[in-house]
Amino acid sequence: MDQFLLVALNGLTLGSIYFLVASGLTLIFGLMRVITMAHGTSYLLGGYIGYSIARASGNWLLGALGAAVAVGLLGLFIHQVLIRRFQDDDLRVALITLGVSLIGTDLMFAAFGGTATQVPIPAEWQTALTLPSGDRYPAIRLIILVLAVVIGVVMWLVINRTRAGSIVRAGVDDSAMTSATGVNVRVVFAVVFVVGSALAAFAGVVGGSLFPLLPGQDGTYLLFSLVVVIVGGMGSIPGAAIGAALVGLVSQFGLVFAPTYATVLTFALMVFVLAFRPQGILGRAV
C-alpha cells in the first residue's frame, strides 16, 4: 500500500485508543467542570484488571467488562468520598485526584510489578487481514478502530438523542437550573463520573491488548488525554475524536519524518492549537 495511507491508518488506530481514554475525561469535564488527574490511573488499573481476568478466564470480553465495572466502582468511591464535597473547587479536585494517582502508581507497582504484561487476545484477532488495496494489515488494529467509532457514535447518540442525554446536556449548561426542574444533578454527576472512569478502564484493556502495560503509563496516558481534550476542546465528544485522531496522526507521521522529535511534535501540536484557538478546535469560548 501507499506508505502514506499505511501511516495514516496507523495514526488513526493509535488515535482510537487515545479517543477511548480521553472521551471519559472530556465527558467528566463537560458535565462537572472538574478535571480528574487520576484518569491515567483508571486506564492502567483497568488494563491490569482486564489482564488478570482475561488470563484467568481465557475470555477477553469478560476481562474488558470486569475492568470497566471494577474501575467504575472505584470511581464511584473516589467521587463520593473525595470529590463530591469540593465539586465547585476545580483546582482542589485536580490536586486531590493527583494525590490519588500518586498512591495508585505506587500500589499498582506493588501489586503488578515493574515488568511489562500484555492482555491476552483471541488468536483469531492476531492475524493480518487483507485490505481492499491488497495489503495485509493487523486485524486487531482494525478491530480497535471500529470499536472506537462505535463507542463514539453511541456516546454521541445517547447524549444528543435520549432523555438521559438531554439531562446531561442541561446539567452542562446550567446545573442549578437543571436541579431546580427536579433532576437530581448529584446522581447525574456520580453516574457520569462512573461512566468516565469505566471508559478509561475499558480503554486500558484495549490499549493493553495492543501494547504492553507497565508502570509509568498512567502518567503517559493522563498526559495524552489532557493533550487530546485541550486540542479538541474540553467537554466535547466530537472534539475528543478530532483531537485524538490528530494526536495519533502527528505521532505516527512524526516517527516517519522526525523520529527523534516524534513525542515533542505531539505536544507541539497542542501548543500550536492553543496559540490560535485557546478553547480548542471544537471547544466553546472560555
Binding site: 496507523n10 493487523p138 505516527q252 523520529p259
Partner: peptide, 9 residues
C-alpha cells in the same frame, strides 16, 4: 524515543 509503544509505522 524511549517509551515508544507503537512500532507499526
Amino acid at each position: 524515543p524511549v517509551g515508544t509503544t507503537d512500532y507499526a509505522t
